[in-house]
Computed example of a mutant assay.
Amino acid sequence: MILISLLNSCDFINHSQALGGLNSRYNDGQPALSGDGRWLALVSNRNGTSQILLYDLRGKQLVNVPGLNQNNVVLDSPSLSRTGRYLVYVSSIRGRPDIALYDRATRQAELLTQGYRSWVKNPQISPEGRYIVFETAKRGQWDVEVFDRGPLIELDIPDGASVVNP
């Protein structure tokens, strides 16, 4: 009887809570915060593979990111733009890492370094989403490279803000 009451008083995390919140019984790590402080991207193994989850700190729940996580693709090193519209990360298919960009507005992901002849890691996106920096081993050592998405992209700026191209 005492054991049953002790077990009932313990704060166990059930499976549905673990999938919807932070600090689950799964391995969650590599957190990245959006510039406005609302969104948190993290790497988790909740579905048996490395995937990126997006957590709404205001709504206190995970949000769906269709088209981001795919079977047989390992994702890590997320970075978010100002309002979380753009997410850059490392996408490894068959062990080969590429820098990828996911646009939450269009729900599309694209590989930015596909065909690149070097190893890449640790991408970071600028607040407005135009520039992406990452480490590359192109010269036989780890160096930093800047990728400019160009002046014609739709910038990640708060609603009502004026646009000033960097």
Rank of each mutant, 00 (worst) to 15 (best):
I99S: 03
D103C: 09
P123S: 05
W119E: 13
S118F: 02
R104N: 10
G129F: 05
A109C: 12
R130A: 01
I99M: 09
S118Q: 04
K121R: 14
R107A: 05
I125S: 03
T106I: 14
E128Y: 10
I132H: 00
Y131M: 05
Y116T: 02
Q108P: 10
I99G: 05
K121Q: 11
P123H: 07
E128R: 06
Q108V: 13
D103S: 14
W119G: 07
G129D: 11
G129E: 04
R107T: 04
A109E: 10
K121W: 09
P123W: 01
I99H: 06
N122S: 13
T106E: 15
A105M: 10
D103Q: 11
L112F: 06
Y131C: 01
Q124V: 09
T106H: 12
Y102W: 06
I132Q: 00
Q124M: 09
I132R: 00
I125T: 02
L111Y: 13
Y131D: 02
G115K: 15
L111Q: 14
A100L: 12
L101M: 14
L111F: 13
E128C: 08
S118D: 09
I132E: 00
I99R: 08
Q108L: 14
A109L: 11
L111M: 12
R107V: 02
A100I: 12
Q108E: 15
I125G: 04
R130D: 04
V133M: 11
A100Q: 09
L112W: 04
A105S: 11
G129P: 08
K121G: 06
W119H: 13
I99Q: 03
Y102Q: 06
R107P: 01
R107Y: 02
L112R: 04
Q114G: 15
Y102K: 03
V133E: 04
A100R: 08
I132S: 00
Q124S: 10
Y102A: 08
Q124I: 12
Q108G: 08
S126Y: 01
E128H: 10
T113Q: 09
P127K: 03
Q108K: 15
Y102D: 08
Y116W: 13
W119P: 01
Q124N: 11
R130Q: 13
L101G: 08
L101Q: 04
Y116C: 05
D103E: 14
G115N: 14
R130I: 07
I125H: 02
I99D: 02
G115P: 15
A105W: 15
T106R: 11
E110I: 14
S126V: 01
L101I: 08
S118K: 01
T106N: 13
T106Q: 12
E110Y: 05
R130E: 06
Q108W: 04
L101W: 07
G115H: 14
G129H: 08
T113W: 04
E128V: 09
Y131R: 03
T113K: 07
W119D: 04
N122D: 10
V120P: 05
G129N: 09
S126P: 01
V133L: 10
Q124D: 02
E128P: 04
Y131F: 13
Q114K: 15
S118L: 05
E128A: 07
Y116E: 01
Q114N: 15
N122V: 07
R107I: 01
N122K: 07
G129I: 06
R107C: 03
L101N: 03
D103A: 14
I125Y: 02
I125V: 15
R117V: 12
